[in-house]
Simulated scan of single mutants.
Amino acid sequence: MIYKHLILGACLVFISCQGVSQQQKDSEVKEEKKFAVNKSEEEWKKELTEAEFYVLRKAATENPFTSELLENKEKGTYVCAGCGTPLFKSETKFRSGTGWPSFYKEIEGNVAYDVDYDIGYKRTEEHCANCGGHLGHVFNDGPKPTGLRHCINGVALDFVPDSK
């Protein structure tokens, strides 16, 4: 009899431990957004490299320390690899040590934000405001003056150097 109560108690504990970290509130469920640049998946596949497609269109993450732009110190503008929208200025880039290009400020109006629960907790996802391409995430552990760290997949960016 005591074993039945222990088993019943253990079952109740396991049932009551339902995780909610990955559950989204109804008000936070992503809705399909319309963007100025709107192409089919096939059109994107034809225009982007395989890596660009999976990051920009499927919200993948490139491996850390693999981006050619990580150590770039030239002056210029980082633009969306999907549509060319200017996203970040080189003056706002900093070395975060995370393995991805990081910026403390975006070009206002060109980066849009969403809530993402992909790894079990709430994060702020960034995407191009013009084509919706996934860029990365923004965190509150960056340098002054903003205190933000825009952690961006380098493959989602192209670099346009300032003209001399």
Rank of each mutant, 00 (worst) to 15 (best):
Y78C: 03
N72Y: 02
D162Q: 14
K164N: 09
K46F: 00
F65A: 03
F159A: 06
I119C: 05
T66E: 12
K45G: 04
I7L: 13
D158S: 12
S67Q: 02
Q24N: 13
T66W: 07
V55K: 15
E71D: 03
I152K: 04
R95Q: 14
T98F: 05
E31Y: 11
T49D: 00
A156R: 06
N140E: 15
T146F: 02
S21M: 12
A36T: 02
M1R: 11
E42T: 11
K89V: 09
H127V: 02
E126L: 14
P145G: 06
K34N: 15
S27R: 08
V155M: 14
A112G: 13
E32Q: 13
I107F: 07
K45L: 01
S102A: 09
N38A: 09
K33D: 07
T49L: 07
P101N: 04
C128G: 12
T85W: 02
T61F: 01
N110T: 10
T92V: 14
S27L: 13
L12C: 12
E41S: 13
K34C: 06
K58Y: 03
I15E: 10
D141W: 05
I7K: 06
Y117V: 12
T124G: 06
N38H: 15
A129N: 08
S90A: 15
G99Q: 00
K25T: 09
E28P: 02
V138R: 01
K58P: 00
I15M: 06
G136R: 10
T66H: 02
V138M: 10
F139Y: 05
E91Y: 14
P101I: 07
L8C: 09
T124I: 14
H134P: 00
T85C: 14
I2N: 10
F14D: 15
L148F: 01
C17I: 14
F139D: 09
A60L: 01
K34P: 05
G133H: 03
C128H: 03
D118E: 15
G109Q: 10
K73M: 04
I2H: 13
N72A: 06
S40F: 01
F53R: 03
Y121E: 14
P161M: 11
G142L: 08
I2E: 07
H150R: 02
E106Y: 04
G136C: 04
K58V: 07
E62T: 04
V160D: 00
L70C: 02
K46N: 14
K46S: 15
H137I: 06
G120S: 05
A129D: 05
C128L: 07
E28G: 10
K105I: 02
L8Q: 08
Q18N: 11
T66D: 08
E42C: 03
T77A: 04
N63D: 10
P64M: 08
